[in-house]
Design a binder for these strands. Structure first.
Lengths: 226, 226
DNA sequence: TTGATCAAACGTGTATACACGTTAGGATTC
DNA sequence: GAATCCTAACGTGTATACACGTTTGATCAA
């Protein structure tokens, strides 16, 4: 599908690799990102590392303080809630548009993605569910037929990844999530945009609300010393 | 307000300068951004220029093609409409939240900003109106009391600047815009979030719709040769 | 012992140098 | 005369070198 023959630029590859380490939690929020250290670790010079860090800083995953080095961005609980509120609104917009514009093919794809989530739920496999859930939501983004909106949604979704991931461990979360998905699919297929928007807004916001509880532990993780 | 003592990094300053040249139209969409040329023009080396371009590329104002140089991003008409749709939704969200959360002080500030627009309208000064309009909208962003949302709105607003600017030249646009502002202020102060959201959504979307007409001329500007 | 001051090491920010892909121009061939 | 191939110049991508601010450790004074 992605027929780009080669990234061809080290900066891009490094950007993805470092982002991977951030979202998987290998690099914790607040961790220093020493340019020389990273350069040595990846076997390249500082130049492409710097360029990768600048990109990640623009994306909000890294915080660069002048002359004082870069660190993995620490998102305080309050801001995290704000971000989830915006995410909820973006997804609501996607759902509203999707209800009006989704094609027959896309309906099939959406139902397939939904079905796949069911399998992961039944297998009680949070990691699988995490990925399949992401694919499910992307189907809705695409069905909005607004490419820019879809990009924004994907971008913010990525940024929230490390925090979202914890959610699925909550008891019964997968089952509740799946049943919410069902209602959303029904509303979209029925062409009821307002209902679909309202449902998915709640679906996302509940995660933000629950974070009010979880953030404490996250904060503990990111600042062990103090 | 912004108590940052000094940007201290050339990359940042160059980023702003180049962005300025893009949004003011000095650098037209599609224009090549030769690193050596820019470096010579600003009297610096290629390194900070590259870093500035990477930031601008992340922001979407510049398009970097591997090994083939950077150009000012060309936004095709279709995508521009998509961006205005998202902008409308972001502003609607700001207005909805603002109606619930705005403080007495912020109401005063909002009315002041609105009043300032009136002066520019009466003076029939589109350039002044352009800036005051921006300040007016920012008051609403801030009143949403969602810092992340406000940042996103400001960011997208900046990106749409070069295209938005043309709008005010349209006959009677300033008068219509001002009267729409009035209704929006009333709805927010009255605490009617849904009405405020609906009004501002229309206020923004009408710009996107009108662009369907204007884009032809924009396209002509950006690609004189063919 | 604790506090402040200073100096050296460290790391970022910028400049320069080099390598490779891209592109444009000219020569050659059909 | 037009198209293609080759070649050389150009510009990007990466590496290296250097300058300056920041930080840290030690020394000295109270």
């Amino acid at each position: 599908m992605d027929h780009a023959p080669a990234p061809l630029r080290l900066s891009e590859q490094l950007c993805e690799k470092i982002e991977e380490q951030i979202v998987t939690g290998l690099l914790r929020p607040g961790a220093r990102l020493d340019e020389q250290e990273l350069a040595a670790a990846f076997g390249v010079s500082r130049t492409p590392i710097r360029e990768a860090l600048i990109q990640l800083a623009s994306a909000g995953l890294v915080d660069m303080r002048p002359r004082r080095g870069a660190v993995v961005a620490e998102i305080e609980p309050h801001r995290l809630c704000e971000m989830f509120d915006v995410m909820a609104e973006l997804e609501a917009m996607c759902a509203r548009l999707a209800a009006r514009r989704i094609s027959e093919q896309e309906i099939v794809a959406l139902r397939d993605a939904h079905q796949a989530c069911e399998s992961a739920r039944d297998a009680d496999n949070p990691d699988a569910y995490y990925w399949l859930n992401e694919l499910f939501h992307r189907q809705i983004y695409m069905a909005s037929h607004n490419g820019f909106l879809a990009e924004q949604a994907i971008s913010l979704h990525r940024r929230l990844r490390p925090y979202r991931r914890l959610q699925l461990r909550v008891r019964n979360r997968m089952k509740v999530s799946y049943s919410e998905h069902q209602s959303i699919v029904d509303a979209i297929v029925a062409g009821d945009g307002e209902r679909a928007a309202e449902l998915i807004r709640g679906h996302i916001q509940v995660q933000g609300e629950r974070f009010t509880d979880l953030v404490a532990s996250v904060r503990q993780l990111s600042s062990p010393a103090a």
